[in-house]
Write a protein that binds this DNA or RNA. Structure first.
Lengths: 162, 162
DNA sequence: CGATTTTTGTTGACCTGTCAACTATCCTGA
DNA sequence: TCAGGATAGTTGACAGGTCAACAAAAATCG
């Protein structure tokens, strides 16, 4: 069952199931599987959850970001992020330095250990990325990122449909 | 912050954050928001969860499917699906008729009430679908479904990366 | 100033998805 | 025919995401 069937125009028409033509459904199904694959790699090779990895990547190897800053960019839930960062701080992956100019927030950066893990995993994840992009045609490769941007925009608009 | 920025080549290069170039991350972020939008519509207009809606759509208005059948197509977790179907059966949305030829399984179909709700929501969701596709260029529209198929294939292959 | 609003981050309650174990039934093949 | 294995579906435990309320600090603006 690891084939990509059930998605050709023929088979869709055959079972006449409209859901296979729904973009959100198709996007989610692919996204789930990609996330599961990434989660497995990160867990096995670095003991990280996917969210932890993304937080590390959002902070970046040299970077310094605040929690809200990260949540805004990634569209993460603040509560989820707060707990994730707390856990990573306790695990020694992240350093939090209070902002002297704004006592509400802290500057988050990778600890030495965190950067070590990040530097080790980044090439692995980039190889996976290359592999994924290689599975696409040139046209698809060119279209996918802008398409996702436009869809994200459309998803954030609320002024279309009751 | 509801704009779609931070995704142009310029701004990505500017903050030099490699995660913005990661397909899985970008796909997930878009998928999250699309799901949230769909969930809101379904909850407000039909009192359905997104998973419930998808189960209805996977069964189809005339259709008759078994639980494993649905799980296979949608790549749903069997446990999750079992609970969802149980709830929908108790809510009167789904009818389950035991298969006389195989006592392990039942044939699932929409009840009258379920089909009524489905028939009412299908046009709404199709309008949303049209709206989403309209936000894409012709090239993007042509590329997105096949690209998702290939990525799903790639995600299901395990023979690539240690 | 000072009252109001906004923003940052934390927390608790809740719901859902995930993983694995389990029973019951069916199929396969010597 | 019957032992081994595959399949259908259920269940429990648990990590994870979601939502809303909240305190503290900062910004706004009369």
């Amino acid at each position: 069952m690891t084939n990509g069937q059930d998605t050709t125009a023929a088979s869709v028409a055959e079972n006449a199931n409209p859901i296979e033509t729904f973009l959100t459904y198709r996007l989610t199904r692919t996204s789930w599987r990609l996330n599961a694959q990434a989660s497995r790699i990160l867990r096995d090779q670095a003991g990280l959850s996917l969210t932890q990895w993304r937080v590390m990547a959002l902070i970046g190897p040299q970077g310094t970001r605040t929690l809200s800053d990260i949540a805004r960019q990634a569209l993460f839930d603040k509560g989820q992020l707060s707990r994730c960062v707390k856990g990573m701080t306790e695990a020694g992956l992240i350093r939090a330095v209070p902002d002297p100019g704004d006592q509400r927030q802290s500057f988050l950066s990778l600890s030495q250990e965190g950067r070590r893990i990040f530097d080790r995993m980044l090439p692995v994840m980039q190889r996976r990325q290359t592999h994924l992009l290689d599975s696409l045609s040139a046209d698809q490769r060119a279209a996918i990122f802008p398409a996702l941007d436009r869809l994200l925009d459309a998803a954030l608009r609320t002024d279309f449909a009751p």
